[in-house]
Amino acid sequence: MGWENRADDDPEGDRPGDVVRSLAELNAAAAVCAAQFPTIGLIWWAGTQQGDDYGGSYGFLYVLALAVVVLVTPLVMPFVGFAHAVAHIVPAGHLARVTARHVRGPTWAWHLVYAGALAVVWAAVTALLWSWPFLITATVLAALGVLPVLGLGHLRRRARVTGRPQGFWAVWLPSLFASVTLFLLVFVGGLLATVVGLVGYQAPALSAGQLTGLWRGADGAALRLDPGGKAELTKLPTESESESESGDWFADPPYTVCEGTGNWSTGRIGDRDAVVVRLDSGCGRQTYWKIGGTEGAPELFAQFGAPDAAEVFVLVRG
């Protein structure tokens, strides 16, 4: 018999096959839940990369970390899917079946309703215990329940057609193929969107007037840019003479801390607009402070040392 044959007629637990049906449904729910998590992880990671990386390069360690994640994900995915199924999808399905016996409407529709309701419950729990934002958490959890509920409904229909529950590999192999396919589609789509400029970080464009004012950094560093092109420095890291002339990127530290007055102008280095600061005294050399951050919270930053391991200093509005 299928998972839900006579499910609307008999009380839970009255049939000997209930245990088998429940285990089969739990297995199927875990498989469907697991299929979406690699793609969700990719989307989350892509979202974290939308901010300013200050021109950094991840290099070999980044590639190695990504390779480890790809290799480990298939091992972790079943456990994550099982946890999601036990805490969210399976309880919602049980409530949906009980409701469908007494109220009109398809079981899958009630399953979606209860999945959304449990998302609200878990969002409230996380808000109380860990101060997670309630509305965002509830929305995300509710969205995570849609694909498993619809996928589980599809597997139930197949079980009714074949007359028996789907076996272990009958649900996990399609889950694996679906997971890989969905992951690749999102990955390739993200690459294309990045290439054409639909997504990705864009540094703010600031006029000379917007750049004027006080900018502060760590350890008391400050840079005041006056409208007339004058600059005043306080404990500000500046490109050192040794690094500029000898290429000694490995000096400790790879910069010179300077104070005094000078002048500034707008410029460009690489793909970034920048503020070029020149001192009147002999301390350090002219330094390019690149423009970063966002339109609402602009930043100036400079990099000192080897390009693949540069020390970055950031200045924000004072």
Rank of each mutant, 00 (worst) to 15 (best):
V146E: 06
V20D: 11
P307K: 00
L176P: 00
L192M: 05
F37N: 00
G163T: 11
P227W: 04
G13H: 05
G145A: 02
P237L: 09
A309H: 12
V171E: 01
A31N: 11
G270E: 09
T194A: 13
V63F: 06
V316A: 14
A297I: 00
G305A: 10
N263E: 12
V32W: 02
T162G: 00
L66H: 07
R97N: 02
L118S: 01
V20T: 15
P16E: 06
L182F: 02
G267W: 07
R160I: 00
R6D: 15
L128G: 13
A100M: 12
G282Y: 05
A92K: 07
A30Q: 08
W215I: 05
R157N: 13
A7M: 11
D226K: 02
V113E: 01
Y114R: 03
V180W: 01
A297Q: 13
H111I: 02
T137M: 13
S22H: 06
Y255R: 05
L128D: 15
A310C: 07
V72W: 06
T39W: 00
I136E: 14
E259Q: 14
G284M: 08
L147S: 12
T139C: 07
L118C: 09
Y201N: 04
V149L: 08
P254G: 12
R156D: 14
P298M: 03
